[in-house]
């Protein structure tokens, strides 16, 4: 519970991209992602252009790629799904040379996999770039300036604030499980893990009630005061 450690996604810096107003960056990200998603997947060179544009922004922000790439693991489940598609999809099949072997895969599945992988990767990289160059509180302020309903902004704010608290709650519960000879990773002990997660939910819910009490005690009336942000 010491002091220090910044947000895991934010990369401290003072570049043009870091200093740009948050609401502008959010709009650009949204525009970029929508454009990428709407681009027909057969336009291969265009995706190269998108990637070059994105890498240009990353370069301008002076965020090292070695910082962004490891954080792209969130995308792995989608990539696995994409890799499966050529094998399970129907339709005309093509032979694909794969390290001396000829593998017969579905042509439409292959296209779908390509589309999913390239659009997903571009989207994740763009989002990580926003996260790396913008403090979470600035993202919230940006969303607010974009007139996102206040309630949603409040909920996201609390999520950012309490993520570390809840994660460390979970960490302590897992340590306690291990200390009593239960390995949370072993499927044999998944029932115990499930009960722990249930307990974590109840704990967090009760914390929510206590936080609400503390807010009421300081005159909260349903709206976060604008000046306090």
């Amino acid at each position: 519970m010491g002091a220090g450690h910044g947000h895991r996604l934010h990369f401290h810096g003072h570049s043009v991209v870091h200093r740009a107003p948050a609401h502008l960056k959010i709009l650009l990200l949204l525009g970029f992602v929508l454009t990428v998603v709407a681009t027909p997947r057969e336009w291969y060179p265009v995706f190269g252009g998108y990637l070059a544009l994105l890498l240009g922004v990353v370069l301008l922000a002076r965020v090292p790629l070695t910082y962004l790439l490891p954080r792209m693991v969130v995308e792995v489940p989608f990539l696995l799904f994409a890799a499966l598609m050529p094998f399970v999809a129907e339709g005309p099949r093509v032979a694909l040379p794969l390290g001396g072997w000829e593998v017969s895969v579905s042509e439409s599945g292959l296209m779908a996999a390509w589309g999913l992988a390239v659009k997903g990767t571009l989207g994740v990289l763009a989002s990580l770039t926003l996260a790396a160059t913008t403090e979470p509180t600035d993202v919230l302020r940006g969303l607010q300036r974009l007139r996102l309903p206040d309630l949603l902004v409040q909920i996201m704010g609390f999520m950012i604030r309490y993520l570390d608290v809840v994660t460390s709650d979970l960490g302590r519960m897992l340590t306690a499980m291990r200390s009593r000879g239960v390995d949370p990773r072993s499927p044999r002990h998944w029932p115990a893990l499930a009960r722990t997660l249930g307990a974590l939910f109840v704990r967090s819910y009760e914390r929510g009630e206590r936080v609400h009490l503390a807010m009421l005690s300081r005159g909260y009336d349903g709206r976060l005061p604008g000046d306090a942000r």
Binding site: P136, T137, L140, G157, F158, I160, R161, Y162, V165, R207, R210, V211, L213, A214, M215, A228, R229
Partner: peptide, 8 residues
């Protein structure tokens, strides 16, 4: 942690 709920 119950009392401090804002970002800064």
């Amino acid at each position: 942690d119950d009392q401090l709920f804002m970002g800064s």
